[in-house]
Computed example of a mutant assay.
Amino acid sequence: MNLPTLAAIDEHLVGARPHPWLARWPRFLREFLYFGIKEARACLFVVLFFAAVFTVPREGLFGIARYDVLLFAALAIQAFMLLAKLETWDELKAICLFHAVGFALEVFKTSPSIGSWSYPDGGVTKVLGVPLFAGFMYAAVGSYIIQAWRLFDLRVQHHPPHWMAALVAILIYANFFTHHYIGDYRWYLAAAALGLYARSTVVFRPLDRDRRMPLLLAFVLIGFFIWIAENISTFFHVWSYPNQFGAWAVVHVGKWSSWALLVVMTFTIVANLKHIKARIHVPD
């Protein structure tokens, strides 16, 4: 029996034609099932990348350091996504921007003068103390949002003017750097984002009917799952915070807010892709 290709699976998911054997299921179970399948599919890059992160032993493979193996794995996954036409060239450009933005932040945060966290293992592909694969952890968030947009037929209603969203996103990114010198203004920025997106609603289609949820709730939920992934990553010593060198400890819950704000910034970049921007309603 021939297994369905990924393209065929995507076509089925986007077409929202449930299998006949599901007809007797209650609607909420059918929608919940398809919601879960679409979420898992949208996380394809995330799942494959972090599968490599969690399975490659700390000592590396075949004499190649772990960080170098993870870079090769990330590049291979990204090439697969592109060649399989799961991502367009424009989407790849946005993902590369996420990588660059994330890598710059990593270099700053791991610098000797800041020391927020560190990458303890060696590797040929470490630049300024940061392995090059690290930027893909930020790119993975962008990839998820791009894939979810297509699979869930996402639309946004009452999105704020794009220039306002861009300004808040820039200030959020800047605060990750400046709070070491002039104070942490994340809660002021969170309040600004709250006011800016208070009326924004994301419309999505788990199966064959549109559902709605506040866009702010989506930011918070995605930030939470990134925080969970961060805890798993530090447990496997991919990177470590200063309080985790003696023994592993749960990442402070305050990082959840940082990740939620980073999701706001990531969403702003994705929202400016031409084919996505057309599906965003900005009130006059």
Score class of each variant (00 low, 15 high):
N2T: 13
P18N: 14
W21I: 14
F32M: 15
F35P: 01
F35K: 06
E39V: 15
A40C: 10
R41A: 11
V47D: 12
T55E: 08
R58P: 05
A65W: 02
F72E: 04
F72T: 07
A73L: 06
A73K: 02
A74P: 00
A76L: 08
F80K: 06
L82D: 03
A84L: 11
T88Q: 06
W89C: 07
D90S: 15
E91R: 10
A94C: 10
C96I: 13
A104I: 05
A104M: 07
S113E: 15
I114C: 05
G115S: 12
Y119N: 03
D121T: 12
K126F: 02
L128S: 11
L128I: 03
G129D: 03
G135M: 02
V141D: 05
Y144L: 12
I145S: 07
H158S: 15
H162R: 15
A166N: 11
L167I: 12
A169Q: 00
A169M: 01
Y173N: 12
A174R: 09
N175G: 05
F177R: 07
Y185F: 14
L189T: 02
A191G: 09
A192G: 00
L194I: 12
L194G: 14
G195C: 09
S200I: 02
S200L: 04
V202I: 13
P206N: 08
L207M: 05
L207A: 01
R209D: 08
L216E: 01
A218V: 12
V220F: 09
I222Y: 03
I222N: 05
G223I: 01
A229H: 06
E230R: 01
S233Y: 00
W248A: 12
V250N: 10
V251K: 03
W259G: 03
L262A: 13
V264Y: 05
T266G: 15
T266F: 08
F267T: 08
V270Q: 11
K274L: 10
A278S: 15
H281I: 05
